[in-house]
């Protein structure tokens, strides 16, 4: 069974991705700080119905210095890692001019530094094993502007740049690297949006609605599948046409 690590797999998009991949027959290792009730039931469901498996490994991805040990443990406990989905991220909105430096630093640490370092160690194991798939969850905010999200946007744009150059670096080894850029999806991260803002986003989207968690999970599943073997260094936007 192919192992796929999904960071932030306990809730929201990450949980949706973890469920989808489990249903497609992967062994998914979800990483987050806390196990959520939804994740617990998804793990029970997978155990009962298969075809894949879902495991939870608690870890705080802000602890950059511990990431290497995490990867060593994952490889020891689960074997070779076929896929990595860098999905965990945090979002605070706020006007840059009054945002606390510690908040700026924390956003960059969790959303940019941590996935880069995690990828470093997992790509090494993919190198040793002869191939793999990396999917970085970016955001449409990485290429369009939203007032109040400048720092978050910087971290999401960083994933797009990271994707393209790393794809060139590791392509020879049979490792593909791609991004998925969701538009606004209903999760804990977007609960601050009020009804009016949501309607405005819907109105401005070609399909007159928001994408849902499943739409994003489908894109990730496709990139991990053998069907996507010739796709690397690019981005799949799943935003119901919001940025079209």
């Amino acid at each position: 069974m192919r192992n796929v690590v999904v960071t932030g797999g306990s809730r929201g998009l990450g949980l949706g991705i973890a469920r989808k991949l489990t249903a497609a027959g992967y062994r998914v290792i979800a990483i987050a700080r806390k196990e959520s009730n939804q994740l617990t039931s998804a793990m029970e469901e997978a155990e009962r119905d298969g075809p894949g498996l879902l495991h939870f490994v608690p870890f705080d991805l802000a602890e950059i210095g511990e990431i290497r040990r995490l990867v060593t443990t994952l490889r020891k406990d689960f074997g070779p890692i076929y896929g990595l989905v860098n999905n965990a991220a945090i979002a605070f909105d706020g006007v840059l001019a009054i945002m606390h430096n510690s908040q700026i630093e924390h956003l960059v640490r969790v959303n940019t530094l941590s996935p880069i370092v995690l990828t470093k160690y997992i790509v090494r194991s993919m190198m040793a094993d002869g191939g793999g798939r990396i999917v970085n969850v970016a955001s449409v905010v990485g290429f369009t502007g939203y007032s109040g999200l400048s720092v978050y946007a910087a971290t999401k744009a960083s994933m797009l740049g990271f994707t393209r150059s790393l794809a060139r670096e590791v392509g020879r080894l049979g490792v593909t690297v791609n991004s998925v850029a969701p538009g606004f999806v209903d999760t804990a991260m977007t609960q601050n949006l009020d009804a009016e803002q949501r309607q405005q986003i819907e109105r401005r989207s070609a399909l007159r609605r928001l994408p849902d968690v499943d739409d994003v999970a489908n894109a990730v599943e496709f990139i991990l599948s053998d069907k996507a073997k010739s796709i690397t260094g690019t981005v799949i936007t799943v935003d119901a046409g919001n940025t079209a």
Binding site: R68, R124, M127, A128, V170, R172
Partner: peptide
């Protein structure tokens, strides 16, 4: 350098050490 990186990754598997980290 990519080949050297592969060697470092595989040596970590066989010898259990990564002196570069």
């Amino acid at each position: 350098s990519l080949c050297l990186a592969i060697i470092v990754a595989r040596l970590e598997d066989t010898l259990g050490v990564d002196p570069f980290t």
